[in-house]
Nucleic acid binder design. Structure first.
Lengths: 213, 213
DNA sequence: TAATGTGAAGCCTTTCACAGCA
DNA sequence: TGCTGTGAAAGGCTTCACATTA
């Protein structure tokens, strides 16, 4: 099992486990069973054990998992056992909000640079980061890119990031980009997720005259 | 097939198809084949046909799909064929950015109200929306909620939205919430997605002394 | 001819049940 | 006894090939 292909879905769930463990480690706990972690997170206990087993067993039968040790193991699997630097491109409303987002911290991310095309924004400080020109990215040793530019600028930004040696991109722009095969891209599309939500929720009332078609 | 269970994954892809079709409809096109739509979006043509077939066939063999008609069909499936109102709670950096986010428009969403606990923020205008107290939500006819409050406030906000009659929630707060079974919840967790990205990207260099464990 | 719609095959993921270990 | 790790079953999704239709 250990050497078989690892499901993407298992990888997707690891950060959730990590968050739960970090939260539990603050509560002066040492050991935890898959059952109790599962209850804490609202997932299934066998799912947790199965997911962890893809990467090798980290627990002790009859006892459970050592929280601190498991945190280290998951960090290592996710390659978060070192500071990982990311560059953000597009310092608009969303970009500024992401720059100030406190959630990256616990995973060991550092947004190390921010870029924008607008000359007015160059030099502005957001949090402790100074906005610079995208051209200066190449000199920095940064693996990950975060794209928060408008749709029209997405393809160009994407190309520039690839040229600058970025290996993976988290994009908030829903627009399709060619050249995706070269690097890993994860897209967050807020409007699309809201549309998906709409599917599952029958509208409470149908307002006459508001139908769009 | 038409009456079988519809995969969540197919629902997830519909908004993508809708976006592509909207984009193509601006280019004075009338018909399109699944092959060409697939190429445009960077997906497989049989996937598009299969997904659409779960909801009934909308195309014409030998011809393809009528773009305008298919747009209407998908809107109807996603229950976006009317104005859908959403309320946003938590007007911080992220909340403000989401309020100003232009992407909801094309899907027919309207962020109809914004709420915050902070008295200083009440009455402030963001875009054309005035921030109000969450207590006033109950009087409005709104189905969907968007949660952009900090982790600590997530559970309380969630409870209040359920009490106010909200049927579905898009949450940017990664924190676990009890009571999820009552309503549909979709979570966007930026840091978690970045962690997932990290897994797929070997760091370009290991900086000595920066390892966290 | 050109394209859709779909049964069936194949693949991946989740769930289950339990052997095995502390 | 209590809990992990995992083979096997069940379930769900994707891919394929092709019958069918305009």
């Amino acid at each position: 099992m250990r050497y078989n292909k690892i499901p993407d879905e298992a990888v997707r769930r690891l950060p959730t486990y990590l968050r739960g463990l970090l939260s539990l480690s603050e509560q002066e706990r040492k050991k935890i069973s898959s059952q109790r972690l599962a209850d804490f997170l609202g997932v299934n206990h066998w799912q947790i054990r199965k997911d962890l087993s893809y990467f090798g067993g980290f627990g002790t039968p009859g006892i459970g998992y050592d929280i601190e040790k498991l945190i280290r193991q998951i960090r290592k699997i996710l390659k978060l056992n070192m500071v990982r630097k990311a560059a953000l491109v597009g310092v608009g409303n969303l970009g500024s909000a992401v720059l100030r987002y406190p959630g990256f911290r616990i995973y060991g991310f550092e947004i190390a640079a921010a870029f924008d095309n607008n000359p007015k924004k160059i030099g502005r400080k957001i949090g402790h980061i100074t906005v610079a020109k995208l051209q200066t990215l190449q000199k920095r040793k940064i693996d990950l890119g975060i794209i928060t530019v408008p749709c029209e600028a997405a393809q160009e930004t994407f190309n520039k990031l690839i040229t600058a040696g970025i290996k993976g991109v988290l994009s908030f722009s829903p627009c399709y980009k060619t050249g995706r095969k070269k690097i890993k891209v994860i897209t967050i599309d807020i409007a699309m997720d809201l549309s998906r939500l709409s599917y599952y929720i029958p509208p409470s009332q149908f307002v006459a005259g508001q139908a769009l078609s």
